[in-house]
């Protein structure tokens, strides 16, 4: 089978399965967006209860194999008369899932549900969703505008009773570097410079210069109280941890069509030379569901920049 590169491929894969299953079907496609991959979930809920369908059961006598590189999961649920997941309908080998449709007859199921989760390529949603997040807030420095919309909702539904895109992600990048640098006091920056200079100068003839730097350092040290520079930066880094940032400085305004997803340090954390403990940007993921009834969604994310700045500033106030 081909790789699932687009929603069209997913529709095709769903139809292939659909051909194997007889009875009164309610088929849906859901595209579940996850951190590392999108899963296209084909679900068929089948009522085989009527006579025609019962006769059709004879034709089931088969199994269907799925390559585990292409398919993330295969599940079968009994709905009537027994209602539970039927684990032994799916055999798992190191490379394949084998769905045994004979189980339907064996257990004499009147209705059942089959779920197949196809791994979808990252770019598979391109073309069917257009989204935007404001690159930076310009009209109001706290607000980031986000929206997502389907380009062709009609084509998604083709042949299926329902199609939904779940938790479609939009990544917002918040520039926090300026808020950080402007709130770190001068003496901390100066101390960093002096430390750097002392470490840089290996020249034994510049002993006098080093002495001068050491004096400056001693003077500045009083400002730090009991702490030293590096423990101060550990404190700042901890303050900047994404989960804290997410819960203290991010909010959603308006219609709440989006939910708040993960948050992480963005950009320049990793460098060619050296590691920094201060992020330039914070990346926040906002998620929304789209379907035929709701083909478009919009929202506003609030970054509480003033509170963030104030709290950074507070980190440097002398503890009493």
């Amino acid at each position: 089978m081909r790789d699932i590169n687009s929603v069209k491929d997913l529709l095709e894969a769903g139809k292939q399965i659909s051909k194997l299953i007889f009875g009164e079907k309610f088929e849906s496609l859901r595209i579940v967006c996850k951190e590392d991959e999108n899963i296209g979930v084909y679900t068929a809920t089948v009522h085989a209860g009527n006579i025609v369908a019962k006769q059709m059961k004879k034709r089931y006598g088969l199994t269907k194999k799925f390559d585990r590189q292409e398919v993330s999961f295969v599940k079968m649920y009994g709905l009537k008369p027994i209602s539970k997941r039927i684990y032994d309908a799916v055999e798992i080998t190191p490379t394949e899932y084998i769905l045994n449709l004979n189980k339907i007859i064996e257990l004499n199921l009147d209705s059942f549900r089959i779920e197949i989760g196809y791994r979808m390529n990252h770019s598979s949603l391109e073309g069917i969703v257009r989204s935007r997040s404001s690159p930076e807030p310009l009209e109001d420095r706290r607000l980031y505008h986000i929206s997502a919309q389907l380009t062709d909702p009609d084509s998604l539904i083709e042949g299926f009773s329902e199609c939904e895109i779940e938790e479609f992600p939009i990544t917002l990048s918040i520039q926090i570097q300026e808020d950080i640098t402007t709130n770190i006091p001068f003496y901390v920056k100066k101390m960093s410079e002096i430390e750097e200079e002392i470490l840089r100068d290996y020249n034994p003839h510049s002993a006098i210069k080093i002495l001068g730097l050491q004096k400056q350092k001693a003077r500045l040290k009083k400002r730090f109280g009991k702490e030293d520079l590096r423990s101060k930066f550990t404190e700042i880094s901890l303050f900047l941890r994404p989960s804290k940032f997410r819960s203290n400085y991010i909010d959603i305004s308006g219609k709440k069509e989006f939910i708040l997803g993960d948050c992480k340090w963005g950009g320049d954390i990793f460098r060619v030379l050296g590691l920094t403990m201060l992020p330039k940007t914070m990346e926040v993921i906002m998620r929304t569901n789209l379907n035929l009834d709701k083909p478009a969604a919009s929202g506003i994310m609030i970054y509480k920049s003033r509170k963030f700045s104030e709290d950074i500033h507070k980190l440097f106030l002398k503890k009493k």
């Binding site: 570097q177 460098r271 030379l273 590691l275």
Partner: peptide
Amino acid sequence: SIRDLFFGPLLEYFKSS
């Protein structure tokens, strides 16, 4: 050195804004 790994990037961070 600790200078390259810690203070270098830090100063760069402060100074780039």
